[in-house]
Design a protein around this nucleic acid. Structure first.
Lengths: 147, 147
DNA sequence: ACGCAAGCTGGAAACGTTCAAGATACGGGC
DNA sequence: GCCCGTATCTTGAACGTTTCCAGCTTGCGT
């Protein structure tokens, strides 16, 4: 509670033996605000906190963070990669077919039985990724107005 | 049984009010052979049947076929788009993290209960897409050999 | 057989992403 | 507190997939 936001990130990084750098702290803060952000959005947000950060650094940082389990990379078909801070709780996503908006969905069953593939052709499975496709509330209204 | 393969495709197209063209028939034949093919692989295979087909035409045809429900577009994160002919049976996919190979997995529960998202933030969901991530048999052996 | 529109061709470019080489700065050890 | 080695950042470029555009060709209803 007494720790400033910046130091929470630093502790997370140090706990994994990663160097604490300005770009990494800034990305952690941006992701911590929530949402499913594109690389470009993250870069823009980071640049409001630091004077200049190269696009490359943002990609590097995001790669390092997701390898370390501090960020999660999601990539719905037909969309550029997005990143979120919420990790380790096995939740899934709903994607709007019309506008591409993404929302979180908690997995009702925890480690659901149907997500344990039977007869996977000899594959050793370590993760089940679920993406729901549909229409967000705003696009439902937009579509109804068209009719 | 008495219909040549080419005419089966023509019938499918006509049934949906779509024009029957050489590129479309060729793509249908290629997809009919099975597998999860990249656009580039499809284009190459098509060009062994027809003298020349533009890349553009292949993209157009695949887009039209998937809109018509004759092909299904799958796009695992970090991979170019792939297409398969098997549609309408609600099956899912296992993707190898190492080599990118894709295999089919039947959905054990049919319309599984856990795939009915509860509390999806007002979204109207029409499809649940499941992707399993793991290691294919060949890459399991390769990894074991490294240790 | 005719005409219209759907569909194809060819060239070009946009997009997100990754690679390479060198400069910088973090953090353990003195 | 200072120094060094290396992880990390910067800059600049390139890659591969996918889409856009204008114009010609072709399937199919009449």
């Amino acid at each position: 509670m007494s720790e400033p936001v910046e130091d929470q990130g630093a502790a997370l990084l140090r706990a994994r033996g990663m160097r604490v750098t300005r770009p990494r702290l800034a990305v952690l803060q941006v992701l911590g605000a929530g949402g499913h952000l594109e690389v470009d959005e993250i870069a823009t947000a980071v640049r409001t906190r630091l004077d200049s950060v190269s696009t490359q650094a943002v990609y590097d940082v995001l790669g390092a963070l997701s390898r370390a389990g501090l960020a999660r990379r999601i990539e719905p078909a037909g969309s550029p990669a997005r990143f979120e801070a919420r990790t380790g709780d096995n939740h899934h996503h709903v994607v709007c077919r019309a506008c591409g908006a993404i929302a979180d969905v908690d997995c009702v069953h925890g480690t659901a039985p149907c997500l344990d593939p039977v007869g996977a052709g000899g594959f050793v499975v370590d993760e089940a990724e679920v993406t729901f496709w549909g229409l967000c509330p705003a696009c439902q209204r937009a579509k109804a107005a068209d009719d």
